[in-house]
Structure formats: structure tokens, C-alpha cells
């Protein structure tokens, strides 16, 4: 199942709009921007619909709405393990990308991509960065979910202080997140070790890929055997 390009939460009207030539009609910009606002309020993410907005900006530069653009990029940040943010950037140009909010978001994106999660959180706590994300509800928690996913891909056990730094959570907040994730902590001590259940990514075994002969590969040989 691939939900990236057609999330189940997408209304039918939007679906029809972005799958027809109506997606190029500048009159539809507002409809799509409204849908974007909905996504931000309800913790949903519809990349394909948001790319349609950027396409309209690309063709009609006078429609460019900086606050909507910021929302789109902030949404894309929450899926930093995928190429979403870049796919958005590719539809912009140098002069838009040089605007202050975009530069700041690109900086945050870089920290996430480089897995410098501690630096990401401390930068985000500065007010001029935090302001960029206020309109996206649950931004912090969805970023946290994604970071936790990345950690669970690599680690079987991790030092608690490091985890606190990566997730920017301490004490009871951290414990409650660990509970939701099903991760267990060796002790309530701050210097304990957190164990992450095995999953398909953090369970790694050396394998030998053996060849698999398809029947089709043998047809010629069988054909020859017939003629003898």
C-alpha cells in the first residue's frame, strides 16, 4: 500500500481536482490552500495536493502566498526521511529560496537530514524558528514520531541521555512516549539504557543471496531437447 500519493483522508473533491487539468486553474488555489490549512489542523499530510499548490505558484508567481508555502515546507519536514522537502524545493527558484523563512526551514531540514537532532531542537526553540511552525498543529510530536522511527531503525539499545537529547523529552514525558512506542527502560535512572524491540530494520543478519532459476530461463534448453 502506498499512501504517500493518495492519503485516505483526502476528500473526493480534492482528489478529482488534482487528478484533472483543473489543477492548473489558478481559481482553485484557494480551495487547495484551505485543504492545506485543514491538514495542518488535523495532523494530516497530503504531499500531492500540496505540490499542486506549488505548481500554481510556479505558473502564476503573483499568487505566491508565503504563509502557505511555509506550511507546506513545515509539513514536508515531518517526513524528512523521504524526499518530500526536496520535491517541494524543486518547484521553487533561487529568489524564493533566499527568502528568510525558507532559508530557516532549509537549515532545520539540514539538521534533520544529518541526524543532528539535538541541534535541530535547540534551533527550533529560538522564537523566530518556532514561529514558523505554530500554524502546524502537533508539529513537535510528529517530528518526534519520525525521529523515534529513525532511532528504532538503527538501535537495539540506546543510552537514555542520548535519547533525551534526540527526542527533546525528559522525565515523565519521555516515559509516557516510551510506553506508547513499546520501548522499555532498564531503570528510572537518568543514565539507564532503553531497549527497543527488534524490527525489520534493526535486526540485521549476514545473508547470502542465492540465485533463483526462473522457468522462463530454461525454455530454450527444453526447446532444444525436443528437437533432438
Amino acid at each position: 500500500m502506498d499512501s504517500t500519493f493518495a492519503p485516505t483522508t483526502r476528500p473526493e473533491a480534492i482528489n478529482q481536482l488534482i487528478n484533472s487539468v483543473e489543477r492548473y486553474n489558478p481559481d482553485n488555489t484557494e480551495v487547495l490552500e484551505e485543504y492545506l490549512t485543514n491538514q495542518c489542523q488535523n495532523d494530516e499530510n497530503d504531499l500531492a495536493a500540496n505540490l499542486a499548490i506549488l505548481k500554481l505558484y510556479q505558473f502564476n508567481p503573483h499568487l505566491l502566498n508565503m504563509s502557505a508555502l511555509v506550511k507546506i515546507l513545515v509539513k514536508a519536514l515531518t517526513k524528512f526521511y523521504d524526499a518530500d522537502f526536496n520535491l517541494c524545493l524543486y518547484l521553487l527558484n533561487e529568489s524564493i529560496a533566499a527568502e528568510e523563512p525558507i532559508v530557516k526551514l532549509m537549515e532545520l531540514k539540514q539538521y534533520l537530514e544529518e541526524a543532528q537532532f539535538g541541534l535541530f531542537w535547540s534551533t527550533l526553540r529560538q522564537s523566530d524558528y518556532a514561529d514558523l511552525t505554530v500554524e502546524v498543529n502537533d508539529f513537535d510530536s510528529s517530528i518526534r514520531r519520525t525521529i523515534a522511527h529513525v532511532i528504532s531503525m538503527a538501535y537495539q539499545t540506546i543510552d537514555r541521555p542520548l535519547l533525551e537529547q534526540y527526542l527533546d523529552l525528559q522525565g515523565a514525558d519521555l516515559v509516557s512516549l516510551l510506553d506508547t512506542l513499546g520501548w522499555s527502560s532498564s531503570s528510572e535512572q537518568a543514565d539507564g539504557v532503553v531497549t527497543i524491540p527488534l524490527n525489520e530494520y534493526n535486526r540485521v543478519e549476514p545473508t547470502v543471496i542465492t540465485e533463483n532459476v526462473q522457468f522462463a530461463q530454461l525454455t530454450k534448453i527444453i526447446g532444444h531437447a525436443n528437437t533432438v
Binding site: 538503527a154 538501535y155 537495539q156 539499545t157 540506546i158 543510552d159 539504557v193 534493526n202 535486526r203 540485521v204
Partner: peptide, 8 residues
């Protein structure tokens, strides 16, 4: 090439 981490 793949790996997993147990702490460090």
C-alpha cells in the same frame, strides 16, 4: 552492508 547499534 547493514548494521545495528547496541549503544556505542
Amino acid at each position: 552492508l547493514d548494521f545495528y547499534l547496541r549503544q556505542d
